[in-house]
Design a protein around this nucleic acid. Structure first.
Lengths: 341, 341
DNA sequence: CGCAACAACCCAATCGATTGGGTTAGCGGT
DNA sequence: ACCGCTAACCCAATCGATTGGGTTGTTGCG
């Protein structure tokens, strides 16, 4: 039957101290010591009384005040291109969960992959005095990250990697290779890639993994069979239109580095009077929840998005603790479904 | 050629004051007055020098300190069921944009529509001393909201409404009516509804709008033609399976109160060897970016998601200013596509 | 000339929590 | 009886910005 902060003003350390007739500093020390009384700050009996009262009054320390003194906010700032990108939204859920477990809260902002916005949002986060940043919108051009590092801002990357900076990502190269193997084994010899945005390591690595493995298998990929595009459905459709219109011979399989682009591609294929899975195989990436449920279920490379988010938090924690970090690449697996079977 | 907070420690008011040989309070007043010097705090010349130096040193006030004194954080807390729900993610983008325009930052958390989590996350937000809350996961059971109101927490609802509390929503009843009119006009007489979660006003209102209009048009809707379900793709598929298995006669049209559920339904329809749009018409809700790009483009009720988010911020601002608010319902429109044409 | 009015500042308290450095009382030991 | 030691606290400064109330010196005006 707690009363929490009901009605009256919020309870402060001083309130507790007054009510018990002891000094605020004592209360503070008690509430900070695990359960063992720290620095011989108080008797076990007093400690018990304090903790009891704190619970009863629903005391929760004012993070503003604590942060002011300690210079720490227990906040992690997260920057993503856009939360309406399901992939990032899910990674963010992983981030938020893992951060909560460590006693951190997270603060998220959208940069729309625009360099000016990225800088603005970063500054805004730093102005809020976040303890560290998790950056999900890194571009391969490492300039801005170098600046950040020079400012001694603790940060890690998530989803996209940039050489020289710690990151938690999927092993995108491997993901691309899995797709190449799969399509090759299915007997396809004419393929095309909807490659995503060239500034994102996800796009570049997945494409590179695919193309290199394809060549290693003895296949060929003409120049115009790799089309860069936006990551969304409309982008995928446009790219697929381009491929279907210009590639000769027409590919029998498409690899889209993103499920949404793949869905757009499915639409384009159908508009050309072709059937997905029969005339043209399509494989996506990320295995978002949609993939398996589509009218024609989409083959997709499953990346552990939640885990990637959680890992990013772990890495950032290591950085905040001043220790050395290694980037982590989590392993993807291929889910084959009707669209390529 | 700004230097911003490069290298050295962050700049404080006192630093600026010392460097100019004036008192911090004067600096504070200057930086607060619009451009006209407030309360006759300083000469125009001094004001200019101060502003100049502040810019040069990249001064940005410490929100912790300011908040401590003013008891305001310029933070709006946002609670949503899950950011990986595209609809909420987009509303959140609208919220974040509009909040930024007003000088607020936002703080978002996922409750997974679980009452315990809702309470935990709310408390966590309040512990962070947000100025107000935007609640996107309200359940029709108004108990928790009443408690919040009793605690005098400023808040507004977004996406879902609950009678008695200010909200920014789509006119979901109207949305349902649009669909009823459309399907009726297309000649359908046997229809079913994939109704969503019964605790969400969006689901209830859309369903009610549809059903009531359908009855008014002279149609009939058997009890088992309304199936409650989760909002996601898998939920939609399951609901559609149920409908196709049990409804007799088999409906020629399905209204899913959510695009993702509609996509799941498309899958189920296809698995039954039926063709979407030809054998069974399907209409979704929200007109997410996917709808138009699907292999079979999905008819959907377009709700102004970004605007709903922005409106919620405006409403909350009004509440924070201590003025009276009226709930806002934004008007949806129907986008007819191949799935029901 | 005298006094009020003002411009242009300065002072110090305050917000709430934290933390390095006391202080006090009681006890054991010699 | 005295010293040292420790347990159990208390004190006060500090973080950075804000704000109600001064304090000067100058100007305006009757």
């Amino acid at each position: 039957m707690e009363e929490s902060a009901a009605g009256g003003r919020t309870v402060t350390l001083k309130d507790l101290a007054n009510e018990l007739g002891i000094h605020p500093s004592t209360v503070s020390r008690i509430l900070h010591s695990g359960s063992e009384v720290a620095r011989g700050a108080a008797s076990v009996a007093t400690a018990e009384r304090v903790r009891e009262l704190a619970r009863k009054r629903g005391y929760s320390p004012d993070p503003q005040a604590a942060g002011l003194r300690t210079r720490r906010t227990n906040l992690m700032g997260v920057i993503v291109p856009r939360l309406s990108d399901l992939v990032l939204a899910i990674m963010y859920e992983g981030i938020d969960e893992a951060a909560a477990e460590l006693g951190y809260s997270t603060f998220v902002m959208n940069s729309r992959d625009d360099p000016a916005e990225q800088r603005r949002k970063t500054d805004s986060m730093l102005a809020r005095r976040v303890d560290g940043l998790i950056i999900g919108d890194a571009h391969l051009d490492s300039g801005p990250l170098r600046q950040l590092a020079a400012r001694k801002v603790p940060f890690v990357l998530v989803n996209r990697r940039v050489p020289g900076f710690p990151s938690a990502t999927c092993d995108d190269v491997l993901g691309g290779e899995l797709v190449a193997d799969h399509l090759w084994n299915k007997g396809h010899r004419n393929v095309a890639v909807i490659a995503g945005e060239p500034y994102a390591s996800t796009a570049v690595d997945r494409t590179a993994g695919f193309v290199e493995r394809w060549l290693a298998l003895g296949g060929a990929i003409p120049r115009d069979a790799v089309v860069w595009s936006r990551f969304d459905t409309a982008g995928g459709r446009e790219a697929a239109e381009t491929i279907l219109a210009h590639c000769n011979p027409r590919p029998t399989a498409l690899f889209a580095v993103n499920d949404f682009a793949a869905i757009g591609a499915m639409g384009a294929v159908r508009s050309h009077g072709l059937s997905v899975g029969r005339d043209v195989a399509i494989v996506g990436f990320n295995d978002t929840s949609l993939a398996a449920e589509l009218p024609i279920p989409l083959s997709s490379v499953r990346s552990p998005m939640l885990d990637i988010g959680r890992t990013a938090v772990r890495l950032l924690k290591v950085v905040l603790d001043g220790r050395e970090v290694e980037s982590v690449r989590l392993e993807p697996t291929l889910c084959v479904r009707e669209s390529s079977a």
